[in-house]
Amino acid sequence: MSRHVEVETELWDEFHRVVNMTSRELSEWLRTRSAHEDAEELPDHSGTPTGQRVLDILQKRRVDLTDDDERVMRKVVDKIHAERRDDLEPTAGQENWRHRLMSLGHDPLKGVRDGTR
């Protein structure tokens, strides 16, 4: 079982800056991505495991985060930075690139959030 941790302010702020989709937008995107012609996954099972974890983290308060949440936050921040410039200005790209980032909670066509909650 994961234990609660105090996530560094810098990580918390950067995660919420690069994850520029709201929990509602991400949830809808994950359901859309998982919808198939023959069947649709249950809403709480739709999307990638990492996308589901990001959604879970977005719905938590900072004091409720676990060490596993912290690990996922670092992974997501690193992946988004690896795919994007540091300024994260809205950028068009190939559709599969955008969709991959959106599954992490980052829409490259949106501006970044200010990180405050």
Results as ranks from 00 to 15, higher is better:
Val77Cys: 05
Arg24Ser: 12
Pro90Glu: 04
Pro43Leu: 08
Arg100Trp: 13
Gly93Val: 11
Arg85Glu: 15
Val19Tyr: 00
Arg100Asp: 05
Glu95Asn: 15
Glu10Asn: 11
Arg33His: 02
Val77Thr: 09
His106Thr: 12
His16Gly: 04
Asp64Phe: 11
Ala82Tyr: 03
Lys60Tyr: 00
Trp12Ile: 02
Asn20Ser: 06
Ser2Met: 03
Asp86Lys: 00
Arg17Thr: 15
Asp38Thr: 12
His106Tyr: 12
Arg53Gln: 15
Glu83Arg: 11
Thr91Asp: 08
Met21Pro: 09
Thr9Tyr: 14
Arg71Pro: 01
Asp107Ala: 09
Trp29Glu: 03
Asp44Gly: 01
Val76Asn: 01
Glu40Val: 13
Ala92Cys: 02
Arg61Lys: 13
Pro90Gly: 03
Asp87His: 14
Pro90Trp: 03
Pro108Glu: 07
Pro43Thr: 03
Asp67Arg: 05
Asp44Gln: 11
Arg84Gly: 04
Arg33Gln: 12
Glu83Asp: 10
Ser2Lys: 04
Leu42Thr: 13
Val7Ala: 07
Pro90Asp: 05
Met102Asp: 06
Glu41Val: 07
Asn96Trp: 07
Ile57Leu: 09
His16Asn: 14
Lys110Ala: 01
Asp44Lys: 07
Asp67Ser: 13
Val63Thr: 08
Ala35Glu: 08
His36Met: 14
Gly47Asp: 01
Gly111Phe: 01
Ser46Phe: 03
Asp86Val: 02
Met102Thr: 05
Ile57Cys: 07
Thr32Ser: 11
Glu89Ser: 15
Arg53Glu: 09
Gln59His: 04
Gly111Cys: 07
Ser103Lys: 02
Val76Gly: 04
Glu10Asp: 15
Val76Ile: 12
Val77Ile: 10
His16Met: 00
Met73Gln: 08
Ser27Tyr: 07
Arg62Asn: 04
Ser27Ile: 06
Glu83His: 09
Ala82Phe: 05
Ala39Ile: 09
Lys60His: 04
Gln59Met: 10
Val5Ile: 15
Thr66Ser: 15
Phe15Ser: 00
His99Leu: 10
Ala35Lys: 14
Glu10Tyr: 08
Glu95Trp: 15
Thr50Asp: 03
Gly105Arg: 09
Pro43Lys: 11
Leu109Arg: 05
His45Thr: 10
Trp97Arg: 15
Thr22Arg: 15
Arg100Lys: 11
His106Glu: 05
Met73Arg: 06
Val19Phe: 00
Asp86His: 06
Glu28Asn: 08
Gly111Glu: 14
Gln52Gly: 09
Ala35His: 10
Arg71Ile: 03
Ala35Tyr: 06
